[in-house]
């Protein structure tokens, strides 16, 4: 992946496939450390699947959630000296998956974040029924978007209307111009 924001888009797609209703994407930058967290309330994975998820060669047609996505993110994190952890829970309550990755942005092999605004807009456009909560903090300043808040204003107007997606794009871009 050329940009970290593409990895984020890719991993969040797993949350979509897991049937999540809420997805939290958090980027927290402090000094050279960048912590990425993608948390969902989807169906979750079994302990066996969690173990397999970072192994690209385990992929079979029947375990569709297992593929190149997580291994690529793991590689991207580890090549900067960072790490990746995946925790997941199945069952009736509190099910879901949390993918955390630590990056060192001052490492020569750090993949730049790239166009994260585009990734967020793509996710909302593709899955407007999910509530997306995005927070990017950088040295005390934050950019934040919560589709729950937007929904309160929009009523019946769907989130994937072009005008709304455009507003979200401009809103996020404006937020980034100040951090």
């Amino acid at each position: 992946m050329k940009e970290l924001s593409l990895n984020i888009l890719d991993i969040a797609m797993n949350s979509v496939k897991a049937g999540a209703k809420n997805v939290d994407i958090t980027i927290d930058e402090q000094g050279p450390e960048l912590n990425l967290t993608i948390r969902d309330d989807g169906c979750g994975m079994s302990p066996e699947q969690v173990e397999e998820v970072t192994n690209p060669f385990f992929t079979t047609r029947t375990t569709r959630k297992v593929g190149m996505g997580v291994p690529l993110l793991k590689l991207a994190a580890e090549q900067t000296g960072g790490k990746l952890t995946v925790t997941s829970r199945q069952g009736e309550e509190k099910h879901g998956t949390e993918t955390k990755a630590l990056f060192y942005t001052d490492h020569i092999d750090f993949t730049p974040l790239g166009d994260i605004v585009s990734s967020i807009c793509t996710l909302i456009q593709g899955s407007p029924a999910i509530d997306w909560h995005f927070v990017h903090g950088r040295d005390g300043k934050t950019v934040e978007l919560d589709t729950k808040e937007l929904r309160q204003v929009l009523g019946d107007v769907p989130l994937d209307s072009y005008e709304v997606i455009k507003w979200i794009e401009d809103y996020l871009k404006e937020g980034y111009s100040s951090i």
Binding site: M68, T122, P158
Partner: peptide, 30 residues
């Protein structure tokens, strides 16, 4: 935007004759 879109939403239902589908798996994204 909501006020402007309200009437449109009704119009949109039942239409959409053409569907464009973009492959967005890991391979597509990369």
């Amino acid at each position: 935007i909501r006020d402007k879109m309200k009437d449109k939403v009704v119009l949109r239902e039942g239409s959409g004759d053409i569907r464009v589908v973009v492959g967005m798996a890991t391979c597509g994204i990369a």
